[in-house]
Amino acid sequence: MNYLHLDLQFFAADEKTEKATPKKRQDSRNKGQVPKSQDVNTGFLLLMVFGVLFLLGSQMKSTMTGMYEHAFQEYIHWDVTEMQVHTIFVEMTWEISKVLAPIMGVAIVAGIASNLLQVGIMFTGEPLKVDLKKLDPIQGAKKIFSARALVELVKSLLKITMVGSITFAIIWVNKDEMMLMSQKSVQAALAFFGNTTILMGLASALALLILSVIDYTYQRYDHEKNIRMSKKDIKDEHKNMEGDPQIKAKIKEKQRQMSASRMMSEVPDADVVITNPTHYAIAVKYSEDQGDAPYIVAKGVDFIALKIKEVAKANNVVTVENRSLARALYKNTEIDQPIDEQFYKAVAEILAYVYQLEKKI
């Protein structure tokens, strides 16, 4: 029973039930794994392109018809020479470019805007890296028959149905007028079919945009599900970010040792060591170059206090016992910092006593 309980705990720890951490989200983004719907791109692109056709359609039609009129009125009479063919090619290319440039420009802007709207600014080459796992036929078969593939199939059928229904409905509404176009002029027929096409495009684009909202919501849900983490993953990530506790403890211990070693090297230069006398030891130094107040060069309790006193004795540094002052300095003053103003008088008296002993005054 104990083994079974441990197994259940192990599987529970590995179950991906937790929301992704900010680091996990950033790592996924760096790999190019972001929630994104292609339908947003498609719908936005179609809406912008057909919007341009709606606004500039008459001008484009005039440019195209003018190009044909010029071709059959002027070019048809030209001799077929290398120079004449080159001239025709350049002029035709320029006229066609004037028609296509607004459409291509808007398509590029729409593509960039729809991507920025979904994922923001992102540069990564991770998806371009060669991954041999993608060539695995078993994994490929699993993707084909996965739940995601089924969702994509349903989504594609829904798009085809929506666009087909909208197109059929518009044609059906205009069928009578469409039949009469054979009796109209070419200009009227072009205007009618152009407007009808733009209407079908705009309606289809709006329908795709509505569908893309649903698809983007699903893509976000699926992305959040895929980047979920287990409790063990979160602990491992925290451990990697903060460092292994044992390693951190060793580093801190090493830092304490280095700090103590550096502190001990300052004791020989101290003017006096104030002691408890057994538990506390505070090494004090006064130098006009360092400031107007004495400052602490070393302090410690128990074993470190004993080491400070040993170093002081070995270097002929005077040791003075003052229990209350030693405790107060230890608690209220840091190493390499001047003593607090409240201790000036007591420390000054001790330093005066030390200077007298050393015959400095």
Rank of each mutant, 00 (worst) to 15 (best):
D39T: 03
R327A: 08
L53P: 01
R262A: 09
V80M: 10
I339N: 04
F10A: 13
L8W: 12
A12C: 02
L325G: 01
R29G: 07
G194K: 04
S58Y: 03
Q84H: 12
K360N: 07
A328K: 03
D176N: 13
E253W: 00
E91C: 04
K252N: 12
S58E: 13
P245F: 00
V106N: 06
F72L: 14
W78S: 08
L46M: 08
L357F: 05
T17R: 13
I308C: 01
A249G: 15
I227P: 03
F145E: 11
N2P: 00
A346M: 01
N115M: 07
M64F: 14
E74G: 01
E288V: 14
F303A: 13
R256I: 07
R220H: 13
D215A: 11
F193Y: 11
G111R: 04
S261N: 14
V297R: 00
I247C: 05
N226R: 14
L199K: 12
E310K: 10
Q139H: 13
F303G: 10
K231C: 02
L157D: 06
S58G: 12
S287V: 04
W78M: 13
L351C: 06
I214P: 00
Q219Y: 04
F44A: 13
S185L: 11
K360Y: 00
I361Q: 09
E242R: 06
F44K: 00
Y286T: 09
V186A: 11
I210W: 03
Y355V: 02
P294C: 05
M258W: 09
R327H: 09
L56G: 15
K142L: 05
S37P: 00
F193Q: 12
T161H: 03
A169F: 12
D39E: 12
A283T: 04
K225L: 09
I308T: 07
N2Q: 10
R220P: 05
S182H: 14
M258G: 09
L158N: 00
T196A: 09
A191W: 04
A314V: 02
M60Q: 10
D222N: 12
L116Y: 09
T196K: 06
E341Q: 11
T21H: 06
T124S: 07
L45A: 07
I144H: 03
D292H: 13
V85Q: 10
E74Y: 12
K331L: 08
H223P: 01
F123P: 03
W94C: 09
Q246I: 15
Q356Y: 00
D176H: 13
V119D: 06
F11T: 14
I214Q: 03
M48K: 02
D79Q: 14
T319C: 12
S265E: 15
K345F: 09
